[in-house]
């Protein structure tokens, strides 16, 4: 199990940041990704492996509309 935005999320072996985004259907272009407080750059989403127990933040930047 991992945390995504402070909510429990089912972890799978080999899961990447990109995999989580696809499962969560996160398509907004301005998302800040942090794993255990460390920033992940967009070009690394497909290769950055998420480990069991990680705290993942995917912060959507839109406080407007």
């Amino acid at each position: 199990m991992i945390k995504v935005n402070n909510r429990d999320f089912q972890w799978e072996q080999g899961m990447t940041v990109d995999d989580i985004m696809k499962i969560k259907k996160f398509s907004w272009p301005k998302i800040i990704v942090k794993i255990n407080g460390q920033h992940v750059e967009e070009e690394d989403y497909k290769t950055r492996i998420v480990n069991d127990g990680d705290d993942v933040q995917m912060l959507h930047l839109l406080a407007g509309g």
Partner: peptide, 18 residues
């Protein structure tokens, strides 16, 4: 009218203001 506050992502998605 949402011009005062649009907090949906901060709240519903980001869970930043629990």
């Amino acid at each position: 009218q949402h011009d005062e506050a649009w907090l949906i992502f901060m709240d519903m998605v980001n869970n930043q203001i629990p």
